[in-house]
Design a protein around this nucleic acid. Sequence first.
RNA 1: GGCCCCAUCGUCUAGUCAGGUCCAGGACACAGGAUUUUCAUUCCUGCAACGCGGGUUCAAAUCCCGCUGGGGUCACCA
Length: 519
Amino acid sequence: MSSTVRTRFAPSPTGYMHIGGMRTALFNWLWARHMGGQFILRIDDTDQARNQEAALGPILNAFRWLGLDWDEGAEVGGPYAPYYQSQRNSLYQAAAKQLEAAGFAYKDFSTKDENDADRKAAEAAKVPYLNIRRSLDLTEAQKEQYLAEGKPWTLRLLVPRTEKIAIDDLIRGHVEWDCGLMPDPVILRPDGSPLYNFATVVDDAQMQISHVIRAEEHLTNTAVQALIYKALGYSLPLFAHVPYVAAPGSKEKLSKRKIEQYRKNPQFKRMFERGDEVFPRLGLAGAQGLDPVMVEYYERIGYLPEGVLNALGRIGWSLDEKTENMSLATMVEHFTLDRVVKAPASLDPDKLFNFQGHWMKELAIGPKTDGCVRFLVQAKLLAEPVSDETRAYVQRIAEALGDRLKIFSDILDCDYFFTYVLRTDEKMFDKRVKKEGVPAHLAAFAEVLKTVAPFDAASIEAALAAYCTQVGEQTGTMIHALRLATTGQQAGPGVYDCLAMLGPDKCVARISAAVAKAT
RNA sequence: GGCCCCAUCGUCUAGUCAGGUCCAGGACACAGGAUUUUCAUUCCUGCAACGCGGGUUCAAAUCCCGCUGGGGUCACCA
């Protein structure tokens, strides 16, 4: 048995990679890798001229970002090239010819209008629609004449209406359809171009795909496809229909079309809001239209591939009864189709964020610093080229930030380390700085700071403790006041770390400015 | 509406195929507490589910039937 596992993902170039589609792709990739087989990335661009590079770029980029490589397919080629449906027309034509010659397909001269009318009539009569096979009654002479006249025709598969067709799905089990209820599907348009259900079968068969792992929404298509496999004389691949990914807190398929509605989704809301906050600062306002349905959103806002992958892997699949945090390698090692659930699962932004936090915590300081630098540069808080000294500074901030940095764009909240803006949250300012005795203490402590050496967290802490003891002021009061005066924030890394990183000059200047404002 | 699929805490899930160890386990979220003179982390505690009704059985979340509910799909889109 030459049973190497070959799976594929076949996106059509839509200009973005859908997060749900990515999950399906991941399962395909995982299964291929788990079994030591091949993963193929084919491009289903049979449709329109909406296509090509601009529309495909984000999709390939999503795979690269997540580290999901493909053995054959777009850009890399392979033994069954080409991997773009738009370039495989001769294959479809040959297969169509074969079907027609064998009597499994026929030319249908009916027009779309006629078919629509038939469909409406069936609907009105409350009977299932079946296309009326008028063209089958045509004599050879009539057909010749139509052809000579150039009357347009489509090629339809002749469905064996007395039969049943069944598959044994790896996830859903035995599923059966009554062919008597199936209209003859069009497999070739009047212009000769193939339709999805036909092209897919020709490609999957020719490319020796062993497991067709795809979203459940294709389950119904499988009946037609199975018929085409049989008519073409191919044996069926194994099918595995995974549940689709639903919108947060719902059972409805996550859809790009419902984006506006998702803005109000309580769980999605935070993601949108963070995006609205961050993307403009990164120079990504408006046009890009980044939203959490797209994989690109996560990359741009600073998620780690590990976080996204981990979350995706836990939508509809589990390793066992308790493992949550999984690397790609772990998933490859344990992934099996029989542990994929049958019911749709919704994307959980909270859980995704939690996985992200876990992997960010695991990330070594080097790459973490690189990520921060990248975002700081993009937000123009740092200018390129970034010197070693600056990089070291960012690293100190990243270290001080510790677990507070969840996604890379969080570093933008620390802009006070790079620029000075005295935030004017008046209420907080009044409460912490413009408070009886505090401005005077701040001014006095600023003088103390000038003499602290070395200017590190420990020395500053000792100096403040000594000062507070001496003047009989609460340390807490001073800590809050100092934080607000120097960073404008109420929360963040330890205040002594902040002061140390800022350095004596900036500390003194900012404290003076705050004191001036308060008096 | 026809066809098809699905049904365990708010959410992701374990358990269902091989009925008992499940008055249902883990995680996220949420609430409370401890640590941290901030925030984050960490730790502890709490909240919370087998859709309903029949069967089969000594025993059902697990098997069978029905109902209800949810969803997918019905193109000369993919």
